[in-house]
Amino acid sequence: MRRNTLVITAVLFILAVFAWAGWANWEYRRQAAERLLASTMQGVLAPDATDGTAEFMTKLKGKAAPGFALEDLSGKKVTLASYKGKAVLINFWATWCAPCKIETPWLIELRNKYAAQGFEVLGISADDLDKDDKQKLSEEKKEIAHFAEQMHIPYPVLIDGDSVSTPYDGLDSLPVSYFVDRNGTVVAAQMGLTSKEEIEADIKKALGK
C-alpha cells in the first residue's frame, strides 16, 4: 500500500515537472520572440494621441543621425557629415514606390522654399543594385537617373540606400524620411505618405523654428 502511494506520488511529481518544463519552454520562447521583435523593429507605427493617425516611432529620434557616405548619380561620394550646420531631410525612396512619386514634388517645393535658410534634401534611392554585374548595375543607375530627371529633382540623389538600411530602421517600407537639425540630431521622422503640411512642419522643427 505504502509502496503504491510512493509510486503514484513519484508519477505525479514527474508529470508536474514535465508540465512545468513545457510551460517554461513556451514562456521562454515568447519572451525571446518579444526581445527579438523589439531589437529588429526599431521604427514602428503607433497611434498618435492628438489626431488618431499613425505616428512613426523611431529610436533614432533625439539621437545623432547615423552617418553615411554614398555615391550620387555622377559617382561622387556624398557624406551626411558634410551637411553639418544645415537642416537636412533624408528621404529614402525607390523608383517602384508609387507613394514616393506623390511626395517628391512636395519635397522639391519645400526644398526650394527653405534652401536659403540652410535646408537641404538628400534623396536616397533604395532600389536594388546588382553590384556583381557591371552592365546591369549601369542600367539600374540609368533607371534611377531617368526617374530623378523625370521628376526634376534638384537636390542630391544618392544610390545604394540598402547599404545603410540597418541603422535606419531596416527600410522595410518606403517612403521614409528623417528630419535632421543643424547639429546632426534626428528631430522627427515619417514613414509612408503623409502630407505636404506635415513634412513642412517637421522641416521647421529641423530648422529650429
Binding site: 517602384w96 507613394p99 514616393c100 517600407s173 509612408g192
Partner: peptide, 8 residues
C-alpha cells in the same frame, strides 16, 4: 504596398 507605403 498599402495605400501609404510600399515594401521592397
Amino acid at each position: 504596398c498599402d495605400k501609404d507605403a510600399c515594401m521592397p
